[in-house]
Amino acid sequence: MPSLPDMTTPNLARPEGLTPRPGGSGTAPADALFEFLLRMGDNTLILGHRVSEWCGHAPVLEEDIALANTALDLIGQTQMWLGLAAEVEGRGRDADALAFLRDAWDFRNLLLVERPNGDFGQTLMRQFLFDAWHAPMLTALEGSADPRIGEIAAKAGREVAYHLERSADLVIRLGDGTEESHARMQTALDRLWPWTGEAFIPDATDAAMAGAGLAPAPDSLRAAWDATLDTVLSEATLTRPEDDFAHRGGRQGRHTEHLGHLLSTMQWLQRAYPGAQW
């Protein structure tokens, strides 16, 4: 069994002030690049999976259809990120092998996206909190020194700009809707809040990527995220929680209990019939 990172002694390097450097060397250690691509692809894979759980169960037909579009975009992005990850790894795996045949500790997604759907308000709030990070991340990645990353980011960025427009709009409308919708959105925000900070905490992988001009430093995205949140939450008449405690570990493979259950559903067929073609 692979050893898990030690929970009590954080090995998280914290380089300050890294920004994407288009003129960077364009090379990072291969394992850092692979890690980074897994982080991108696992975010979209796990969130896409969560969103797809709503299919056929949304509060209104129009919303069912809209959510499916979001999930489809995210699955498509997963194919691109994990496809590139597999190529970079060069060990004969493909995107499907990475998605369906890794165990939880090898997943690198943010803890936020593995949160269970909860009510529809929590699902929308999770989407908004993620989109508000995802959109500036992809914008920054368009300038990556690796054109393969830039290309994926450009395509995904167009889709995610719409995701953000939609999720922000719904958060505003429901926050400033009825008393009940307001209360539900505030609860959703409060509950999800401790899972948002992780996205901005850098580690050694981020340092290597940023240093090579391949990806932005996570903390460099904070200002854009804060600005989006301030605008949207204020229009939504919602209160931004003050406690900045952040659960962390997803990007290093330390997950919550929820991910294992998600994977045992998602990976069921591939695990039950090893080697079969579908």
Partner: peptide, 18 residues
């Protein structure tokens, strides 16, 4: 889906009116 979605449909309608 219908019953648990009522608050969502009502919330959006209320916002549109406001």
């Amino acid at each position: 889906a219908w019953e648990e979605g009522a608050w969502f449909r009502d919330g959006l309608m209320a916002h549109a009116k406001k």
